[in-house]
Amino acid sequence: MESEKPTVSFDQRDSSLRSASLAEVSARSLPRPESVTVVIKHHVRAQAVADYEQWLKRIVPIAQRFPGHRGVHVIHPVPGSTLYTVTVRFDTLQHAEDWFQSAARQSLVNEVMPFLASDEQRQTVTGLEFWFHPEPGQKPAKRFKQFLLTLSVIFPLTMLVPVPVQWLVRQQPWLGNTILEHLVIAAIIVGLMTYVLMPRVTRLAAHWLYE
């Protein structure tokens, strides 16, 4: 009879948190999500865009099964272009390399190559730099412009986001823990910056950023 293969688990929960006191939880360092971002650029053949879109739908859920995965954001081409920019976030460089060097990803890359006009471009960045990537041939955005543009988006969010969160805290007293309240506010701001605002703002300000 065939021996049963062990099941591989990617569960990263810490069971000790169930019995930890409030003081012990408060003393723990906050998690550092999105510490590594890999920016991938694909120049897709015009006649293969539909096939490429189907490929994207397959590869994203596969990547999500790898430990440390923190999300994928796809920036679709502007009219007249077929350049896709995909940002993949991991909590550590080691987890990112586990995915990018995996046999599963290599198989998927082999599938997509016929749809591309050139080899994929890949760059690993940390922090906020992944929002500012010029097109080939463009000058990198100057640091002070990155700072000003990021500040112009973050500052209004720091004024607006706490208002509904504080209202929610009044309705749900269990959220009144100071650390938890600030964590919720930070998570909302980072989510809005990453998925909603910065991809659009950097496109709108591209002429000023990269001039």
Rank of each mutant, 00 (worst) to 15 (best):
P156V: 01
V72Q: 09
I188G: 02
V153M: 12
S9D: 13
L168N: 02
P6F: 08
P136K: 06
H69G: 07
M1A: 15
N177T: 03
T37D: 04
T150M: 14
R13H: 03
R45V: 05
G68E: 05
L148I: 05
I185Y: 00
L180Q: 10
F132V: 03
I154D: 04
E211L: 04
G80A: 06
G68F: 03
L175G: 00
L149D: 00
A96L: 09
H76E: 12
R65C: 03
L83T: 14
L168D: 03
A104T: 15
M159D: 07
I188R: 02
F130M: 10
R143N: 11
T7E: 14
K139G: 01
K57Q: 15
I62Y: 08
H76G: 09
D51H: 13
R18V: 08
V163M: 10
L151W: 15
Q121W: 15
L93K: 07
T87P: 01
Q94N: 09
D91N: 13
S9T: 15
P134F: 01
P33F: 03
I40Y: 09
M1K: 14
T85S: 10
A104Q: 15
M1L: 14
R58F: 13
S118N: 11
Q106I: 05
S3A: 13
W167T: 08
R32H: 10
T202H: 02
P31H: 01
G137M: 06
P173F: 00
L197V: 02
P162D: 01
H133D: 08
P61R: 06
Y195W: 06
W55K: 00
H182N: 11
N110C: 11
R28G: 02
M193N: 00
A27D: 03
L108Y: 15
I188M: 05
T202N: 03
R170T: 06
T82D: 09
I154Q: 14
R58Y: 12
T194N: 08
K142E: 13
S9A: 09
Q47M: 04
V78A: 14
S3D: 14
P156M: 00
A104E: 15
L30A: 14
L93V: 09
V88Q: 09
D11L: 15
V125K: 07
V39A: 08
K142G: 10
E2C: 09
Q138H: 05
S26W: 08
V161W: 04
S9I: 08
H69R: 07
L192P: 00
M198I: 02
S118W: 04
R18S: 06
V74K: 03
R28I: 04
E135G: 01
R18H: 07
E120A: 12
R200I: 05
M113W: 07
Q121P: 05
V78I: 10
V49N: 05
I40A: 10
A50G: 04
V86F: 02
R70G: 09
T202E: 02
P162R: 02
F100M: 13
L209I: 01
S26I: 07
K142V: 08
Q12P: 07
Q146M: 15
F147E: 10
P67L: 02
